[in-house]
Design a protein around this nucleic acid. Structure first.
Lengths: 178, 178
DNA sequence: GCAAAAGTGTTAATCGTACACCCATGA
DNA sequence: TCATGGGTGTACGATTAACACTTTTGC
C-alpha cells in the first residue's frame, strides 16, 4: 500500500499497472496470515477478487510487456507460496457471491443476451441449466430488462439484448427477502 | 498482533484477555481501511465476528474487572471512530453466514432443543417462524439428530435434545447443492 | 444446407405456507 | 391452576424440473 490508499485503491492501482485494466468491481474475500506462508518472513495478504467484463478481457491480452496472462481457474499453473490456496478460496468466494448477489452483471457487457447470462452461470458452477426454465426465471426478475435492441453481425439469429437495472433490483430484493 | 500470530490467534487472545471467553468460532468479514476512519492516522482494521454458545455467555458477565459488557445488537451504545459501521457490517455478515452455512450450532450448546434453534433464527432474522413447518424442515435435515436424551429441571415438559453432526452435514450439502 | 444459437409451454412433483389444539412440567 | 414451552397433520398454492421442436442468421 502506498500513501494513504485504502485496500481497494491499492488493488485497483496494481491491477491497472500490471494489466491496463481499470474500473472493475472488487471484493475482499479473506486475509491470509498463517505462519510460514512466505519463507521470507511473516506476511499479511488481504485478498480480493476483481470481476472484469467479458468484452474487456481481450484488452488485457494485448496489454504491455508484463508477465500477466489469462489462465482457466480449473487449470492454473503452479504458483508461489500459498497462492494456489488463495486462488481456490477466491473461486469459492466468487461462487458464493454469484449465488447471493447480482454480480453476474459485473462480468458481462452492459448489454447482454440471455445466452451469455446462462453460459456464465453454467461455467462458474459447472452445471448445465435448462434453457426454457432459465428464461422463465429471468422473466420474473424485472430488474433484467429487454433493451429492445438486438445483436448484429453474429453468426446466428439476432438475439434480444438485456440490461441490468440496479434500482429495480434493490426494490425486488427488499420484496423477496426478509 | 504480537509475535508471529495469525489474525485469528490475535483475535482469540484478545477476546480471552478482555472477557475470559475462549474456544469460540471466529470468522473474518471485512478489512476497514478508509482514510480518516481514525483521526490518529491511517489504520487497518481486520474485523472478525465470534460465535459464543449461549450457555457460555453468562461466564462473560461474571468475568474480571474489564469494561466489556453485553449489548443487544439493535441497541448499541455510541462507539468510537467507525466502530458502529463495523458492528452493522458484522450483523449483515452474521445473517449471511447463518443463511448459507450451519453456524447456528456454534451459538447453541452442543445439545439443544428445537425451540432453542428456532428462537435463534427468529432473533437473528427478526422474523417469526411457524413451529410445525420449522420442525418439518428440521426432520429432513439428517445432520440434526435426536440424542434420545431430554431436558431436565426446566419449568416445562421435558424436550428432546438434538445435536449437530458435521460429517452428515458435509454429505447432505454435497447432495443438495451443486 | 448446415452450424449455431434464438425462441417458446405443459405437466408432474416438490416445497412452502397457513393454520389450532392437547400435553407435561414446575411454580 | 396457570404459565411455559413440547409436540403433532393437512390442504392449497407456488415453485421447480423435465422435456423437443421451429426459427433466423452467416458461412
Amino acid at each position: 500500500m502506498e500513501g494513504d490508499e485504502t485496500v481497494e485503491e491499492t488493488a485497483l492501482r496494481e491491477l491497472k499497472e500490471e494489466t491496463g485494466i481499470e474500473k472493475v468491481y472488487l471484493e475482499q474475500f479473506h486475509v491470509f496470515s498463517k505462519r510460514g506462508r512466505d519463507p521470507r518472513g511473516p506476511t499479511l495478504t488481504i485478498a480480493l477478487f476483481a470481476l472484469i467484463r467479458s468484452h474487456q478481457c481481450k484488452l488485457f491480452a494485448t496489454g504491455d510487456a508484463s508477465a500477466a496472462k489469462w489462465w482457466p481457474a480449473y487449470a492454473l499453473p503452479s504458483l508461489a507460496f500459498d497462492h494456489d490456496q488463495i486462488c481456490a478460496k477466491a473461486l469459492d468466494a466468487l461462487r458464493a457471491a454469484l449465488k447471493t448477489r447480482p454480480l453476474a452483471f459485473e462480468l458481462l457487457p452492459k448489454a447482454f443476451t440471455l445466452y451469455q447470462l446462462q453460459d456464465l452461470y453454467e461455467q462458474v458452477f459447472g452445471t448445465s441449466i435448462d434453457k426454457r426454465n432459465f428464461r422463465k426465471k429471468v422473466q420474473k426478475m424485472d430488474f433484467i430488462c429487454a433493451s429492445g435492441k438486438k445483436t448484429e453481425g453474429g453468426r446466428q439469429r439476432p438475439a434480444m439484448l438485456y440490461y441490468y437495472d440496479a434500482k429495480r433490483y434493490t426494490k425486488f430484493a427488499n420484496e423477496h427477502f426478509f
